[in-house]
Amino acid sequence: MRTKRLLSVLLLAVTFVAGTGVTLAADAKAENPKAVKAQMEIDKADKARKKAASVESEWTTTGKLIKKAQAALKKGDYDTATRLAKQAGEQGEIAYEQGASQKELRMPSYLKY
């Protein structure tokens, strides 16, 4: 009896989750492909920003660009959003490289021992 109830609850839950997934996907399809592209670039940029942060090398400029991109997306200015997000993503990658390339301490030549 108990297992049956549990099973039905589970089934309901699965149906609900699956249902939401389908609606979301449908929504995305219905959405302007430019908006989808902008959101994708923003997500990519945020991932790059976090990657830079993981090597303690994040720039202050990157988060600001992402915020601006999000604001542009909200306003429906997808081209601006995409452009800014791309810039942010590029910055994240460069900042990561900057941190990663200095994983080992390299003493500068101007300090003499």
């Binding site: 910055q91 460069i94 390299r106 500068p108 030549s109 101007y110």
Partner: peptide
């Protein structure tokens, strides 16, 4: 010069 203090204007966008 890896120790150059100059800001990498292009490389760092």
């Amino acid at each position: 010069n890896p120790d150059s203090a100059m800001v990498p204007f292009g490389k760092h966008r």
